[in-house]
Nucleic acid binder design. Structure first.
Length: 874
RNA sequence: GGGCGAUUAGCUCAGCUGGUUUAGAGCGUCUGCCUUACAAGCAGAGGGUCUGCGGUUCGAAUCCGUAAUCGCCCACCA
């Protein structure tokens, strides 16, 4: 037995078993006649590194997949990565800049070659890290959103939607990221509260040199683009302004005063400056009143020639400078502190500039119908369900999706411009040429005459196809794989991408396959630190996952994360959780050492206590199997884990093993030994989805296994909720044993000294053999007698006492009994109050009334027993 | 500004269609133990007027209303 160390060493076994699983292709799945169970991984950024969110998310997926596999399903977890257009392009640009290379000096091809180099170098690191966690993905299927199949799928889908009239090109006000130099979708803009200023500026009325109005703005630099001032027509303060013009301060331009109820009279001065090119609302006003639109910004956020002054200076520098200049000219009324929300780019954090530009859009309103319904009627189930509200709200107020990005890294838009204007959309160049010839009526056109739209598509325009494109279901819609695996079973993801990804996948599922992409969506929480802060690089409060695995073992970390992670709840991460996981591994390890260390005797008969212990634990095991299965079905994963944890630690190790453990140096009988190994086997199977490595290691030690066999593919036993009487009896027994142990502790009686136990009352003696062993009794005296110097306790209505050599502290005993009596009397009073209430007896269900009567009689019995004990003492 | 969710032991959370011994778990705490699988352990113990107030009901942690606090999402008030 000493061949096993007293401590479990994860490092020794983890790599070994992962290699074994890979070698035997145990993660691999192909369509067959079993039921499929499929999860597609939320593809991490190809050049990203593993963080705690990934750990949580992927642990959950692995638990689900491993459990399904053990339930006999054909389980497939498809891994892959996302090209993450903006962030990857930004990383490549930064790397090139560091090398002194400017993106603008490179051709598209040259840049892409650098980007692919970068992707090949760093891409996939994160997938290697997932292996350390034990992720049982089918790595043979690893996909990338920019590989051939996925790219062609994107192109095909774009053309399909364009043909259907669901994609259009047009000039719209979009969110411009002046750092990434691209348009963004509404979802990619994060509004943050900022302390800024509200500037009150004077606009003099044209032709009335001493009269001015005051306009409040947070962005004084945009006055360069002002083309009107607007007031509310119902505002009596400004009726005199009607039909007049005012002079934009500093700029000197004369602009009209327009009247529109859009303006809030209460806000600021009730006067709004209108800059149609740089504000969404102003754009709307400009449209309505046919105002001139002056775009005063370059793409990078500096002032353009059209601004007329401060040209080439950054917008924020101009803000400071123009205020100084306005101040000097006496055009500033006042400046106030002001808190407002400012849009930032999700990827670069740059302040978003609303900008009028030509972009591609998807008409969402025509697509969302089936997707709304599916979640509404739980055809797709959200766990937890509260996210249904969020989803519905977004889907019903959805706006068109801006899908073009002014980037090179991504899927280039399949649109080609004709020399004489206009464009065609096609899946290939050849097809584009044919269409172009047809459209222009010019058969002499060649590819060289066509110019492809240089823009790329939003990353999410490829990820929304993920559950379909992974099985090539776009290009080859009837292939065996997509037919078999789609719709997938469960999706596990963080709630922050519910709109970016989840909602759009559902939309795509119905649009391109007329079927939901998955049955359940499990939303994880956010991993926070102990004091509730989000984990972030800048705070430095995020532990390195691989370091945690090195310290606690992959199983320990997995368990630590799962212990504190009910669906949708944030988890307050603390290393102590992983410690608990590591300790549990050690517990399992040592229980195994004990059992495997036993010598087995074929001649010894099975002791009565072992027989009872085996019967009891067998029943409890079956009950717990059923309970865990039920909890997992409801995605209550941490509760399921906790149930197995308690079963193993408390019931199996502390009770069962102690009951059947042979005396030191003695062998164990064959029957008990076999049962114990059987229990151990089942326990390991129950634990395996949560803790794959240690369970595989011990399972292979448990019995002879053929090469290629694995607990991974062993079947999960099915349990049944019995509630066998022996379980309830055992609970009472545990109380009696604890009573004796408490007396030992208080009276400082060593465990090895056998004791006499006196019983007063209706004691059930079927488990006495267990009682004798666990409490180390020499005898049980059931003659209803009690020694004068005995310490006693009451279980149910039975008094148990242990005679002591020394005298007992009568006062203390009495105090304890009286406290108990008081509690019981109080309890009885509440029960009797209920029972004496006629309306209760008449209107409560019979079962409930019967239960109250049972409580009443139990309490009375117990009170009698306590009173008897008190009397005996005094 | 709208909407959603939460508030139960020191901490993290269960408590599902109101009734299952005047509320449960894990961790932490306290006490005693190096007992021969495990001190990353064993045995035992303590700890809560279920955020406040009002209501419905024979009966409320659970349902309703209200207040407070916290969190999340959405929204174009300059």
């Amino acid at each position: 037995m000493n061949e096993l160390a007293t401590k479990y060493n994860p490092a020794e076994v983890e790599d070994k078993w992962y290699a074994y699983w890979m070698e035997h292709r145990l993660f691999h799945s192909e369509p067959d006649d079993r039921d499929p169970y499929c999860i597609v991984i939320p593809p991490p950024n190809v050049t990203g590194v593993l963080h705690m969110g990934h750990m949580l998310n992927n642990t959950i997926q692995d638990i689900l997949i491993r459990r399904a596999r053990m339930e006999g399903k054909n389980a497939l977890w498809v891994p892959g990565t996302d090209h993450a257009a903006i962030s990857t392009e930004a990383k490549v640009v930064a790397k090139l800049t560091a090398e002194g290379i400017k993106k603008t000096d490179l051709s598209r091809e040259e840049f892409l070659s650098h980007a692919w180099d970068w992707t090949n170098k760093y891409g996939g690191i994160i997938l290697e890290q997932l292996k350390r966690l034990g992720a049982s993905c089918d790595w043979e299927r690893t996909a990338f959103t920019m590989d051939d199949i996925r790219s062609r799928s994107v192109t095909k889908v774009f053309c399909h939607l364009y043909e259907k009239g669901l994609i259009y090109r047009g000039v719209r006000m979009v969110n411009w990221d002046p750092q990434a130099l691209t348009a963004l979708s509404d979802e990619e803009v994060i509004y943050k509260e900022e302390h800024s200023k509200l500037f009150y500026l004077r606009y003099f009325v044209e032709g009335e040199e001493d009269r001015y109005i005051v306009v409040a703005t947070t962005r004084p630099e945009t006055i360069l683009g002002d083309t009107a001032v607007c007031v509310n027509p119902n505002d009596p303060r400004y009726t005199w302004l009607k039909g007049k013009r005012v002079i934009v301060p500093k700029v000197g331009r004369s602009v009209p005063v327009i009247m529109d109820e859009y303006v809030e009279m209460e806000f600021g001065t009730g006067c709004l400056k209108v800059t149609p090119a740089h504000d969404v609302n102003d754009y709307m006003l400009g449209d309505k009143y046919n105002l001139e639109s002056i775009d005063i910004f370059n793409d990078n956020g500096t002032i353009s020639e059209a601004g007329g002054m401060y040209v080439g200076i950054d917008r924020f520098d101009v803000r400071r400078q123009i205020m100084k200049d306005l101040e000097a000219e006496g055009l500033v009324e006042k400046v106030e502190d002001y808190v407002n929300k400012v849009g930032h780019s999700e990827r670069t954090d740059a302040v978003i500039e609303p900008k009028l530009s030509m972009q591609w859009f998807v008409k969402m309103n025509d697509l969302v119908g089936p997707a709304i319904k599916a979640v509404e009627n739980d055809s797709i189930k959200f766990v937890p369900a509260k996210f249904k509200n969020t989803y519905r709200h977004w889907m019903t107020t959805i706006k068109d999706w801006c899908i073009s990005r002014q980037l090179w890294w991504g899927h280039q838009i399949p649109a080609w411009f004709l020399p004489e204007g206009g464009f065609v959309v096609a899946e290939t160049e050849e097809e584009a040429l044919l269409k172009a010839i047809e459209k222009s009526g010019n058969p002499a056109l060649t590819l060289k005459d066509l110019r492809r739209d240089p823009d790329c598509l939003d990353t999410w325009f490829s990820s929304w196809l993920w559950p379909i494109s992974l099985f090539n279901g776009i290009l080859d819609p009837d292939n065996e794989e997509i037919t078999y695996y789609y719709p997938t079973a469960d999706l596990v993801t963080a709630p922050d991408i519910i709109f970016f990804w989840v909602a759009r996948m559902i939309i795509a599922g119905y649009e391109f396959r007329n079927e939901k992409p998955f049955g359940n969506v499990y939303f994880t929480g956010i991993v926070r630190d102990k004091i509730g802060r989000k984990m972030s690089k800048s705070l430095g409060n995020s532990p390195d996952p691989l370091d945690l695995i090195a310290r606690y073992g992959a199983d320990g970390v997995r368990m630590g994360l799962m212990l504190a992670a009910p669906a949708g709840n944030d988890i307050m991460y603390d290393d102590s959780l992983c410690e608990q996981g590591r300790n549990f591994c050690n517990k399992i390890w040592n229980a195994f050492r004990l059992v495997k260390g036993w010598e087995v005797s074929d001649s010894d008969a099975q002791p009565e206590s072992s027989k009872l212990g085996t019967e009891w634990f067998g029943n409890l095991l079956s009950d717990t199997l059923a309970e865990v299965s039920d909890l997992m079905g409801k995605f209550r994963i941490s509760e399921a884990l906790m149930a197995v944890y308690k079963l193993f630690w408390d019931e199996f190790s502390s009770w069962y093993l102690e009951v059947v453990k042979p005396a030191y140096g003695k062998p164990i009988d064959r029957a008990t030994y076999e049962s114990t190994l059987g229990f151990f086997d089942t326990l390991l199977r129950m634990l395996h989805p949560f803790m794959p490595f240690i369970t595989e290691e011990l399972w292979q030690h448990l019995a002879e296994r053929k090469d290629g066999e694995s607990i991974m593919t062993a079947r999960m036993p099915e349990g049944r909720k019995h509630d066998a009487p022996i379980i309830a009896k055992f609970d009472i027994l545990k109380e009696i044993i604890a009573g004796v142990r408490t007396i030992r502790l208080k009276k400082q009686i060593p465990n090895k000294n056998p004791l006499l136990l006196e019983v007063n009352g209706q004691h059930d003696d079927t488990l006495d053999s267990v009682l004798m062993k666990m409490a180390n009794l020499e005898a049980i005296d059931k003659s209803d007698s009690k020694s004068p110097t005995a310490a006693s306790f009451i279980v149910g209505a039975v008094e148990y006492s242990v005679p002591l050599e020394s005298s007992i502290n009568v006062e203390e005993e009495l105090k304890k009994l009286e406290a108990d009596l008081k509690y019981q009397q109080g309890f009885l009073a509440t029960v009797e109050k209920k029972l004496s209430n006629e309306r209760f007896v008449n209107s409560a269900p019979e079962k409930v009334v019967a239960l109250e009567r049972k409580k009443q009689s139990d309490a009375k019995e117990k009170i009698a027993a306590i009173e008897a004990a008190i009397q005996a003492l005094s």
